[in-house]
Design a protein around this nucleic acid. Sequence first.
DNA 1: AAACATTCCCGCCACG
DNA 2: TGCGTGGCGGGAATGT
Length: 318
Amino acid sequence: MRRVVMVVFEGVQTLDMTGPAEVFANARSGETHHYQVEFAAIGGGELRTSSALRIRCRDLSRLRPQPTDIVVVAGADAPAIVNALADEKLRGWLQRAAKVVWRMTSVCSGAFILAAAGLLDGKRTATHWRGCEQLARMFPNIQVDPNAIYVDAGRIWTSAGVTTGIDMALALVERDVGREVADHLAAELVLYMRRPGFQAQFSEALVAQSAAPDALGPAIAWARTNLARVDIESLAHRAGLSLRTLHRRCAQDLKTTPAKLLDKLRVEYARTLLAAAPRSAKQLAVECGFGNSTRMKRAFERELGLGPREYQLLHAQA
DNA sequence: AAACATTCCCGCCACG
DNA sequence: TGCGTGGCGGGAATGT
């Protein structure tokens, strides 16, 4: 039986710790549990999480890292994470543990703590999409992968935001114990779909809309529900902009171009349709506004690095 | 696979 | 003059 050490601190993001904890604590074959979960913080005692939940935890300083341990470092929002980063004892413990334990992992902004302890140098890393740029700036040696849900860098794993910790934990269970147990767990937790590590962590459409000021936002929202019809011209019209200005606004506000934006929305929509029910490539292409399956295939390859067919196969498991 | 057609992008300039 | 906009046109990218 492995021990899972959930490393927490004052103000820790509740789901970052409870999500993975739930996965590990419920991983079992018949009556046999595979993990024993412990919550630990420097100093121990009682602390408050982000959602005002109070938890009682062990003193991390007194916990001796074991070769079979999995360590999970949770994340937090701005003030709490900064305090955690500054905690020398915490960093020291993590550095010592990293040399010993089976796996060192982080959820969300927990990656900042691992980074501050120097454990991510030269490693590919995932973190919350909002923190990607900052992580890359603060630690230039780290290869931040903004698209990953989680990253398996050998003994060190990092996951993106909040609920992605669950996906990572499931992947770890699958690695340790096997596919069956992981699948069973996913079903128990009523997960809609287990996500592979490389799937984009957020909806392109939502981000595009929130980043787009005034008339462009609603126009994008409209485009999303009319993908079978829109083209660049109608999008511009809808936004009340000329083609030229639409190009400029896309470049400036969304760091993309109109054609690429539409392709992204289309691919994203295709993915949700694919997840909902099987359909022919031709029909899917029409529904998403690609028109034909060749164009759709190319767009998929550009956006995701794999075609619709492979994408579908990959998700058939769930 | 290669030639042909279309669409897209962006520098440039004129306008208010 | 400064600032944002719209239209033009050609070369690049994409699609057929």
